[in-house]
Amino acid sequence: MTEQKSTGEAKDWNPYVAGIALGCVLLTSFVITGKGLGASGAVNRVVGTALHAMSPTWAEDNKLIGSFFVPGVSPLDSWIVYLAVGVLLGGALAVVTGRRFRFETVHGPRVGSATRLVLAFIGGALSGVAAQVARGCTSGQALTGGAQLALGSWVFMFAVFGAAYGLAWFLRKQWI
């Protein structure tokens, strides 16, 4: 699907090679930190920190984020936040070394950029709620819990694929 132009940009890895590499990163994380991978948790902490800046008492009483706030420790001084910063750095390293940076709005042939950007925002908002409800996203639930064989994470993974396939027909103009 990815058309390579003659800019010397690196091609996508073979998916099985990429999968083995990703599995090794995940396993290394388990062995070294006792935890898997994640992404959405960092967003929750940034949001919590911002809310705390506006109203400390409200944030500390909130049943979802109250536990973020320990005297003397920033809520951003957390494993999940450093992990997300690492994702940005590692992604940037892959982009730079592979000459894969390009400003663009990715969409299918039958929609314009404006529609795509609106849908991207709506989809992001759905995912932000979803990751809070499920206590994790594709990384923190499906990958991490999937490899552990955690029951609820497998339910989560099938639900993700089920909903996306179920809705694919309605969104087809965006993608194909």
């Binding site: 991978l37 994640g38 992404a39 959405s40 967003v43 994702v87 990715v106 795509r116 849908l119 991207a120 925002f121 709506i122 989809g123 992001g124 908002a125 759905l126 995912s127 932000g128 709620v129 979803a130 990751a131 809070q132 409800v133 499920a134 206590r135 996203c137 594709t138 990384s139 639930q141 339910v155 989560f156 993974m157 099938f158 639900a159 993700v160 694929f161 089920g162 909903a163 996306a164 396939y165 179920g166 809705l167 694919a168 969104l171 965006q174 993608w175």
Partner: peptide
């Protein structure tokens, strides 16, 4: 429920958080 919502977010938005 979170999985269903994330799947909806994926097909509507094109990504997952990571």
């Amino acid at each position: 429920i979170g999985g269903l919502l994330l799947g909806a977010g994926f097909i509507v938005g094109g990504y997952c958080p990571g």
